[in-house]
């Protein structure tokens, strides 16, 4: 990206605009789906899937992760592993205890 030509930047700008349209569209979709009163499990699956797609679009294009250098990836992969461990382990311990109680 550092030595990008003006033409390349203009192409990037087009990508940014399309990503913006996609983000706005997905926002509307996720709101509409929420009015359908799906059961909680389906609602979670749909809403989080859409959020993940939107998040990936932002990270990949606005934050240039799609063309980023290896070192950044390594930092992020490491972070992601610990992020997931932190996200689910406390809830898993909580759920396991409750499974004994019931």
């Amino acid at each position: 990206m550092e030595h990008a030509t003006p033409e390349a930047i203009k192409r990037h700008v087009k990508v940014y605009i399309s990503v913006f349209v996609a983000l706005a569209f997905l926002t509307v979709v996720t709101v509409i789906v929420s009015y359908l009163k799906l059961s909680l499990v389906y609602a979670i699956i749909v809403a989080l899937s859409i959020a993940t797609i939107k998040g990936s679009l932002v990270a990949a294009y606005f934050m240039h992760l799609i063309s980023e250098k290896k070192i950044i990836f390594w930092v992020l992969v490491l972070t992601l592993v610990f992020f997931l461990a932190l996200l689910i382990t406390p809830a898993l311990t909580g759920l396991e205890i409750r499974s004994y109680v019931s």
């Binding site: 709101v31 859409i50 932002v58």
Partner: peptide, 18 residues
Amino acid sequence: WHFVDLVWIFLFPVLYLL
């Protein structure tokens, strides 16, 4: 700034829609 946006993209469904 995009990261702040990204966080909101997850906060919005988690807090408002689910």
